[in-house]
Structures are given as structure tokens and as C-alpha cells.
Amino acid sequence: MRLPLFNSTSLIRLAFPKQCLQYGKPRLWFSTSTQLRQHAEGTDETSITDIEPQQTEQRNLPLVTSRKLQFPSKVAPKQAWLETLEQTEDDIIGIVDLHPEIFGLFPRKCVAYFRIDVLWWNVFWQREYRRVDYRQVKTRAEMPGGGRKPWQQKRTGRARHGSIRSPLWVKGGKSFGPRGPKSHFFMLPDNLRVLGLRTGLTVKYAQNNLHIVENLHLPSDDPTYLMNLVESKDWGLSVLFVDDTDYIDKNMAIATNEVKQYNVMPVYVWKPMKLFRIDESFLRLSSAAGLNVYSMLKHETLVLTLDALEKIEERLLQHVCNVDYRDKHFSLKAVGPRV
């Protein structure tokens, strides 16, 4: 269960009573990655809980209590806990500020505000623009036969017909049927796409399904560790992890590769990537897409890293708040030189 968020840093004592008592005493909160790796590989005989705190590595808590926001708003910033994936207990390590223009839109039926229908438009667009309709039926010209007049025009007592492939006939040609591969590609306007991302993030935040983590490092590549972690945090059935890079921690890649409902995604990619090894500890992502509305809503929980958070805010605020960027279509360069 999560505690309510407070704006004041002094109230963090409520959230970290144990840590605050031991503030003067240095204490280890994170094991070294080598220890954990040894443990995961079985070379270390001690379990994770048995690792003794060492004086060599220490972190003062809380790690993060505020963050410098670009384009600061008059509205007070939203706040979220900063968590870590490296341990299942005492996993809250700070508080981060979130930009209210991204994570706290005003919900009302108005342009450029929180709207459920904007989410619908984005999902509709993502489903639709890639759709190609391959259905094709034959017209009367393409049907075989039908050149001969089936019976004479007059004096038979029957209706007058000129071809057995007329659209009126059973087994006749089809008029105005679907014809050939037809593209449904269209681009949703930029503003609607940006607004969709902002709305999605707002919804996820308002419904307590958005979580900020320090990074995506896992101590073990065992999928059960990740599943237990998600269960202890009550993150639901499906989780989408988002980082700002298209390469991730090896343990994370292996663990999420085993579990279908856990997926990793970069904030933005320029081209599709294949999963391949670039380092001992990092793997490329195979994802062809960056963070998008469809994936956000498909997963129950959205987990952002700090770097991803920075990137998302930077890119979206550029659209929302930067006047130069917003009015680029009307700039001299876009319009062209005057003659």
C-alpha cells in the first residue's frame, strides 16, 4: 500500500521512519551489483538477505526529493515515489516531481484538455493506419461468360435480360464491391497525438498505475524474481517498462523475454531494432515502436525510468510550451521567402 504524497520534504519522515532514525548512521541500502551477480550465478553462497551491510557503499536517503522542471507551470507539480527494482523491500528511495502539463491535465470536454475520446482517436489511428484491405470481388466484366443474351428480348413472358453476369443475377458480378488492396493510412494531427500521450500519462498517473523507477537493473535474470517483484508491488498482471535507450540491462531483457505480459520499450526509436548482443550486460531491444498510447492502455501498469521521464517531458513540453516549435508552420522558413 502506498502512502499519500506530500509536497513538503519534511513529511518524508513519515514515509521513511526507519531510515530517518538511522540517518546519522551510514547504512547500506543497495548491494553491489557484483555481489548480486555472483549470487545469481550461484558463485556466491549467501542469499540476498544474508548480505551484510558494508560501510564501503552508502547512499543517503532520500535520494531524490525534487527535480528541476522545464517550462515550470503556475500549477504545483505532481509527485510520485521513486522506486527501485533491485529489492522487493524498502524499495522506495525518494520522490520526484512530475510536470502538471503532462501528468495532471484538467479533465473536461474541451480542446487541448484531458479527453477520453482523444485516447480513442489515438488507438483508432494506431490500429487503422497500418491496415490494408485486401478484399477484392469480381465485377460483371471480370466474371467468366455472360456475353450471350440469355433469352430473346420479347415474347417469352420473362423479364428482359442481357447477361447472366448482371449484378441482379445470382452468381452475377458484384457492383461497388471491395476492390483490391486499399490503404487506410492517415495521419492523426500532431496536436491530437501529443494530447493523446499527455492524456494517457495523466490517466495512468491519476489511477495510480504509473510508477517511476531509478533504472531497469535487475539483480537476477530469473523471471520469477520479476514476477514476485511485480506481485509485491501490486502492479497487476501486465507491466510496460519504458527506458530512454533502445538497449537494456541483460537481466531485464532475459526476464521479460520469458514473461509475455511484461514488455520493455524505449521512449522513442528511429528505426526497428533486432535483439542482439552489444555488450556483456546489455541487449538491444527488438521493439519497433516507442512509447505510444495503445501500449500504455494495453498494459495495466506503466513503469518509467528517471531518464525516460526526462525524455518524455522534454519531447512533449517542446510541443506544448515552446512557442517557436508550435508556430513553426507559420515561420518564414516554412512559408518560404517572399518574392
Binding site: 500549477v75 502538471p100 470536454k109 475520446d117 482517436w121 492502455l297
Partner: peptide, 26 residues
């Protein structure tokens, strides 16, 4: 902006917004 907080707190108690319950404007 207490109204924003109020509106978003209402949203908190509603079912989770997902692909199944989106609707366009009437």
C-alpha cells in the same frame, strides 16, 4: 487548481481506462 485534483480523484475510483472502454464523442 483544486478542481483538477477533484476531477482526477474521481477518475482514481473509476475502472481502469483500457483499450476496452474507450469511446469517441457521441
Amino acid at each position: 487548481m483544486a478542481s483538477v485534483e477533484k476531477a482526477l480523484s474521481l477518475l482514481k475510483n473509476l475502472p481502469r481506462v483500457n483499450l476496452g472502454n474507450l469511446k469517441p464523442l457521441p
